[in-house]
Design a protein around this nucleic acid. Structure first.
Lengths: 166, 166
DNA sequence: GTGCCTGCAAAAAATTTGCAACAAC
DNA sequence: GTTGTTGCAAATTTTTTGCAGGCAC
């Protein structure tokens, strides 16, 4: 359901799920934190789902493995993942926060289907260049940006056209 | 504090505050709603402030004129203004919803200073064209979009540079 | 008078936090 | 054993809603 920007292929393909857990372990150790079963479970679920997950969805996935994991733990773990750069929080229009895996993934923006909720990632250097230029012309130095395009994906448009003669 | 996109001058200048109230009155009448003092007060305050106001700020402004106006009324009135196209809700990173006046104002996007919170509007047709093109290439038909550039405004950068060498 | 509007307080929804029990090193 | 972690529930924050009384027409 989720496309990756351009054709960038990542080493390891689906196997890339393994590496972030090592990064997490390193981060945990380095900061004098402790290892925990729940944390692993949340991280594993998160990386195996692989894209734009809401806390609610993640809690569901985690609880399939362990019914007793609390919402608070999932929130706390996701913040930890964000802190060590393994997850990026995304806040789409009217929705609750979602997280996407970030390990080694380059910057990109999002297309969001208002029909089915599908989220497609894209990257466009020319837009980035123009953004930087606009910012500069206003004396701003850009630190981050958010570009979200909301609309109907091809499938939803087809469905709509099929349903009613226009 | 708020720049308008490009050099588009609007007829009436600051006097343009008057017209929206007439539009509101028409909308209210047309839909069989009733006129109220509080509603006028909220709308007046909103249009006289003139840009990117949070409900909290607006409540503050309104209460300077009438201490008893409730938060609920402000929320309800702003939704009414949004319904009749006189205000647009904007949700910036981590902040509560803000509203900006929309009467006759063309589309634009935002630069937000992460230092002082200043919000600058801008419009860039080339970015819009590229956005539409990207969307099309993914089979999407864009309905709306959100482009926000976060960074430091000139003043905040100057201040930072002055404070620390390096 | 009828019906929309208001203020208040309670409800909702999403997220955070205090705390006592618990687990990791 | 010390210290970080967890689950639970309560607190927070922002916004919405139910309701009884009030105001507009």
């Amino acid at each position: 359901m989720i496309e990756t920007p351009r054709d960038r292929t990542r080493p390891g393909g689906r196997g890339a799920e393994r590496e972030p857990l090592a990064v997490l372990a390193g981060h945990v150790e380095q900061r004098g934190l402790k290892h925990s079963r729940q944390r692993d479970l949340v991280a594993e679920s998160f990386f195996s789902i692989g894209g734009h997950v809401s806390i609610e969805e993640l809690v569901g996935a985690v609880r399939r493995a362990d019914r007793r994991v609390s919402v608070a733990t999932v929130y706390r773990t996701m913040r930890l993942l964000a802190d060590c750069g393994l997850a990026v929080p995304r806040q789409f229009e009217g929705e609750q926060t979602r997280y996407e895996p970030a390990a080694g993934r380059p910057h990109h923006d999002h297309l969001i289907c208002t029909g089915c909720g599908e989220i497609v990632e894209f990257a466009n250097d020319r837009i980035e260049v123009l953004q930087a230029r606009v910012a500069r012309s206003h004396g701003f130095q850009v630190e981050s940006h958010k570009l979200e395009l909301y609309g109907r994906c091809a499938r939803c448009r087809r469905r709509a056209t099929a349903g009613s003669a226009g």
